[in-house]
């Protein structure tokens, strides 16, 4: 009955399949750089540059369904935020509704989604651990970091199964129900997810203990990553995009609701 977003054949050297014959270190670099720049840049134009570039990057892994699911969740949040902001601005004219101002925080979220999803869905946990280790990060940082990445596909699978279960029970799922019974819908979705997450994290914790991961001893990867020209190109392109976004920010300035 189990299924997951990571369910494809992932042979050695293929580095988790289609469209991603990239070293995990280059993908980690893109993620870290994007996180830093998307926080620094608060202009709409700069964020659009980051969003466009990161979106193309996300499409390159060809996991369209996963991407669509993540974007649907983001769209729901954006829609609700827009609705409430519009309501507030109608009641308080001193806080006018600004599309660009509202768009920037969600573009930040979208950029992060675009770079984290490819990392999570196409990386072998081993490659991530190896890369994290090579960064000489403290043990207490790289293990939780790796566990978080390992957790993403399981969590997405849990969401799918919970939604399916509600359908089986006879609940009507949809925007209408969500607005009519928001607390009930939150309970229905989040109670099982919360408990599943706690349980999964405990299971992974036990698994880590039983495999002696607390040792923090010498780690020797049995298969090394291979840095290729494509990785260099990806790093250069991401740096160029980051510079372009920063340039836009310098030229047009920030408009993200005072979060300059």
């Amino acid at each position: 009955m189990q299924a997951s977003f990571i369910s494809r054949h992932e042979g050695p050297g293929e580095e988790a399949g289609r469209g991603t014959a990239l070293d995990v270190r280059s993908r980690m670099f893109v993620t870290l750089l994007s996180s830093a720049v998307t926080i620094a840049v608060s202009s709409f134009e700069g964020q659009m540059v980051l969003f466009a570039a990161s979106f193309l990057y996300a499409l390159s892994i060809r996991r369209f369904r996963a991407l669509l699911t993540a974007y649907a969740a983001l769209a729901v949040m954006a829609g609700m935020a827009a609705l409430f902001t519009f309501g507030i601005s109608s009641l308080m004219p001193s806080m006018p509704f600004s599309f660009k101002g509202l768009a920037v925080p969600f573009l930040r979220g979208a950029v992060m989604l675009n770079v984290v999803l490819p990392l999570a869905l196409t990386s072998r946990i081993q490659a991530l651990l190896t890369a994290l280790k090579s960064l000489r990060l403290p043990f207490c940082i790289y293990i939780p970091g790796a566990v978080m990445i390992r957790f993403i596909p399981t969590f997405m699978n849990d969401i799918r199964q919970v939604a399916e279960t509600l359908k089986i029970r006879g609940y009507r799922l949809g925007f209408g129900e969500m607005f009519r019974h928001p607390l009930m819908m939150l309970r229905l979705m989040f109670t099982p997810l919360l408990f599943r997450s706690l349980r999964t994290s405990e299971e992974l914790g036990i698994a880590a203990e039983l495999k002696g991961l607390e040792a923090g001893g010498r780690f020797v990867p049995f298969r090394g990553g291979a840095w290729t020209r494509r990785d260099t190109a990806l790093v250069l392109l991401s740096v160029a995009c980051a510079l372009l976004a920063l340039y836009c920010h310098a030229v047009w300035g920030g408009e993200s609701m005072g979060m300059r």
Binding site: Q126, R150, E203, G217
Partner: peptide
Amino acid sequence: QQFFALGVEDELAFVHEWRGRPAEET
């Protein structure tokens, strides 16, 4: 529940890598 890696080969190799065994031995 106890698989830390997501692939069969990685899972089999996982503990040995963490125990610092030489790559060839793993």
